[in-house]
Design a protein around this nucleic acid. Structure first.
Lengths: 112, 112
DNA sequence: CGCTATAGGTAGGCAGCCAACCTATGGATC
DNA sequence: GATCCATAGGTTGGCTGCCTACCTATAGCG
């Protein structure tokens, strides 16, 4: 998959992985990998800065915990994050509708 | 609509407008505007450079013509462009399938 | 003469994502 | 006890693509 195709949709994906349960960054990457059937394999240099952006924006909060001697930063959605996720889902539906309308219709009559 | 959402999909839209007929740049912008129900309103600073990119890539060719004293550059798909359009449509379908699979499923079980 | 619609274009900048790199622990392998 | 991999976190710099802002030009209308 072309990598820039993801542009502007990454936040939605990250928020979605946190819907229904907290997760730490590494687990988010793995969850996306599994959920996408291997199509998504986001590098840490993409995910970690994005999570910090989301936290700065108040959409997620994080807590440090130590599991088996390893540091984990676990993220969960805030209320604003849940609202943002709902908005992202709506925006995604509208986006696909628009693009489908352009791409999907086959050849256009020349006069349209 | 968030503008970066379009990232990586613009070429597909432009190629699609040229499927089934030649068009000049201004008409491409208007066609996209109409086809999208007003959702797409691409600025010339986005479209014209993109068309030149597509031409450089061999996906479209252009011809100058003069209509009513005005210069028009009319674009049409090359064979490579038609193949590229088909590939873009396939990529789009795969892309939406992947994102839908992540966004669409509602809350995830924590263990997944 | 000025304004709008039509038609083309360029230049500079911003932001998002990625590649490359770094640190650290625990367990398995050698 | 050394080495390696999986797990877990992170930063930095750069590329690229799109957009904002700006410019030129013609035809037609007021």
């Amino acid at each position: 998959m072309k990598s820039d195709a993801l542009r502007g949709h990454l936040d939605a994906l990250l928020l979605a992985t946190l819907d229904g349960g907290r997760r730490h960054g590494y687990a988010i990457i793995e969850a996306l990998h599994q959920r996408s059937g291997g199509a998504l394999d986001l590098p840490t240099g993409t995910v970690y800065p994005a999570l910090r952006r989301l936290e700065t924006a108040g959409l997620v909060t994080s807590e440090w915990s130590t599991v088996g001697g390893r540091q984990r930063r676990t993220y969960r959605l805030t209320r604003a994050g849940q609202r943002a996720l709902a908005a992202e889902r709506t925006a995604w539906r509208e986006f696909t509708t628009v693009i489908d309308g352009v791409l999907g219709g086959g050849p256009w009559p020349a006069g349209t």
